[in-house]
Simulated scan of single mutants.
Amino acid sequence: MSDLDETRPDWDNAHALTGAYVVDALDDVERARFEAHLRSCPDCRIEVETLRETAAALAVDPVEPPARLRAEVLAGIETIRPLPPHIERGSEATDDRTRRRPWFASTGPLLVAAALVVVALLTTVWLKPWASDDDTNLSATEAVLQADDREDFEQQFPDGSSATVVVSRSEGRAVVITDDMAPAPDGKVYELWLQDPAGSMVPAGLMPDQDDATVLLEGDASEATAVGITIEPDGGSAEPGPDVVAVIEITA
């Protein structure tokens, strides 16, 4: 028997595959067979609709799972829903709608939600060992700080504080890291600037009121020649004022 045959679902209990169908854990052949089953099983159609509504409410960004997850999901779905649709055995006078009630008619939504929450939590746990360094989604700041072409340019101030500009030309961004920098005066703020090759200063954001800060500059730093720090009125200025704290050259 092939590995694929070992992971194919038991079609004698197709009712247990509604969850796997909704989370797209069936292959093309299995999906076609299950959809054929759905056409003759109103109970499973109702459950699939309920599962889809709950899954939509818990939706997350799609991820590419490892190959082993398919077999684990198929096995797990049967433990989450161990019973096929339950058919009430009433008198012959009871109409078909009363005799054929889905097992989840009263408690189904709660059980479905609980099952999907369990699946979501387990998937989150499973995702962690799949991630590699190449798959890690870095923030723009982290991308600059970890870039292969990172360059550091430090400016020391008389009071012992410092500001370091980290530039990545490949990322086209720059980051300012301050160490023990005094706060701006009341009613003022530190504003950052990128100097373009023509010598013009372009606004690049405001610094937080913190002694130690790491700030990603706004704008394209791929051709910037310097980073400026000025003291401006709260809210910043469109052009740098006369109160210049530093102009840090970032060219080799």
Rank of each mutant, 00 (worst) to 15 (best):
A36L: 05
R39W: 06
R39Q: 15
S40F: 10
C41V: 07
P42H: 05
C44D: 01
C44F: 02
E47V: 08
T50F: 06
T50Q: 15
L51G: 03
R52G: 01
R52Q: 05
A55M: 05
A56P: 00
A57H: 05
A59H: 07
V60D: 02
V60W: 00
D61H: 05
A67S: 13
R68N: 10
R68S: 14
L69G: 01
A71D: 14
E72P: 02
E72T: 10
L74V: 10
L74T: 01
A75I: 11
A75V: 14
G76A: 13
E78M: 11
E78Q: 10
P84D: 09
P84H: 10
P85Q: 10
H86R: 14
H86G: 15
I87T: 03
E88A: 13
R89K: 13
R89W: 11
G90C: 05
E92L: 13
A93F: 11
D95K: 00
D96M: 07
R97H: 02
R97C: 06
R97E: 04
T98Q: 03
R99L: 04
R100K: 12
R100C: 11
R101M: 02
P102I: 12
W103P: 00
W103Y: 07
W103K: 04
F104S: 08
A105I: 08
S106Q: 06
T107R: 13
L110I: 14
A113C: 09
A113E: 13
A113T: 01
